[in-house]
Simulated scan of single mutants.
Amino acid sequence: MVHTLNQSANVAMDPPFHEAYKALLGETAAVPRGSEVVTVEEWELPVVDLRRLKAVAAVEVEECKKDIIKASKEWGFFQVLNHGISNQLLAKMRAKQMELFKQPFERKSKEDQFLNFSAGSYRWGTPSATSITQLSWSEAFHVSLSDILGSNGSDELRSTMEEFAGKVSRLAQKLAAILGENLGRSAKFFVENCVPSTCYLRMNRYPPCPVPGQIFGLMPHTDSDFLTILHQDQVGGLELVKDGKWVAVKPNPDALIVNIGDLFQAWSNDVYKSVEHRVVTNSKVERYSIAYFLCPWSETVIKSKCEPGVYRRFSFREFRNQVQEDVRKHGHKIGLPRFVL
């Protein structure tokens, strides 16, 4: 049986999931018992108070850095407090994001015309899905920072995005430098290779889903970057793998979430962990989040200085192209295992 949503004001703004995935939604009745997304235990991520980085005592600064490094090794995820982005800016960014997603679907799908974002910035669902387990019940604006820089206050959404991106970029550079220096690498690497025009903001909306136990908001995956910084609302839904099992991340209104990406895992020779994570759906409440991705130039070469190396050297372009090819062929990302020596 194909599940349908009640008629509501959301219909005009929601992507046409039911029409596009009618056949896949029909599979839900045939999903074997035990294959549903099960409820998992809620855990709190490690919390790092970045105010300590400005402490007078050098020992306190070093302890803060050690906490960042430890969480990156053991969890691949952590939360940061006193991160330099005000609650007022976060609230304004969330309000503008929600206002954007409330636009009719037909208008959102023409984002290059009414927002001047690059074509393809607006995304929804999983176009390559061939089974119900590959379908993501979400929509997003995946925007290059080059699309929003220099707004000069001409558009409130773009100027708010630019202000947010500027602050979160500095935070990402600070954290990457700490993690890089622990490996004996110069902080200049990130300044030179991860410039604003190579990085992205991704605004996410997860609409209520009629079959939340069988469809993800975002499929299990790892991030194809160095670092991701996430601001999420209080609905919850983010889950990650810890000690071989899925755990739910308890929302913290005062914190930003940081996670290690594939490039940092390869660059660190597996010292830091790019951990699989996913978003589960909710049948009644929509969820919003915004992520910043610290990415390098396409030709930036990823190579660990450690010997023996776990991965062969590769460019970010090569990695990204391989991911895209695997998604087309297999319906999901394979990632770093493709580059193991």
Rank of each mutant, 00 (worst) to 15 (best):
Q234T: 13
Q234F: 04
Q234S: 14
Q234G: 05
V235L: 05
V235C: 10
G236T: 00
G236Y: 01
G236F: 03
G237F: 00
G237M: 07
G237V: 01
L238R: 01
L238D: 09
L238F: 13
L238H: 11
L238K: 06
E239I: 09
E239V: 10
L240C: 14
L240W: 10
L240V: 15
V241T: 15
V241L: 15
K242Y: 15
K242E: 09
K242F: 14
D243M: 10
D243Q: 04
D243L: 12
D243A: 14
D243S: 14
G244C: 01
G244P: 01
K245N: 12
K245F: 11
K245H: 14
W246P: 07
W246T: 01
W246G: 07
V247L: 09
V247I: 15
V247N: 10
A248S: 15
A248E: 02
V249W: 08
V249F: 05
V249Q: 12
K250G: 12
K250M: 09
K250E: 10
K250F: 12
K250P: 04
P251N: 11
P251T: 14
P251R: 11
N252Y: 13
N252A: 12
N252K: 07
N252E: 11
P253H: 08
P253M: 05
D254F: 08
D254R: 09
D254G: 04
D254N: 14
A255Q: 06
A255W: 00
A255C: 03
L256W: 04
L256K: 05
L256E: 06
L256Y: 06
I257E: 01
I257A: 11
I257Y: 09
V258S: 01
V258E: 08
V258H: 01
V258D: 02
N259I: 00
N259A: 00
N259K: 00
N259L: 02
I260L: 14
I260F: 06
G261K: 01
G261Y: 00
G261C: 04
G261W: 00
D262V: 00
D262T: 03
D262G: 04
L263H: 11
L263N: 11
F264G: 02
F264C: 05
F264M: 15
Q265C: 03
Q265D: 09
Q265S: 04
A266Y: 10
A266G: 13
A266R: 07
A266H: 12
A266S: 00
A266C: 07
A266E: 09
A266W: 10
W267D: 11
W267E: 13
W267M: 13
S268P: 02
N269P: 02
N269Y: 13
N269A: 02
N269S: 08
N269V: 04
N269T: 00
D270A: 09
D270I: 08
D270K: 06
D270Y: 02
V271Q: 14
V271W: 13
V271N: 12
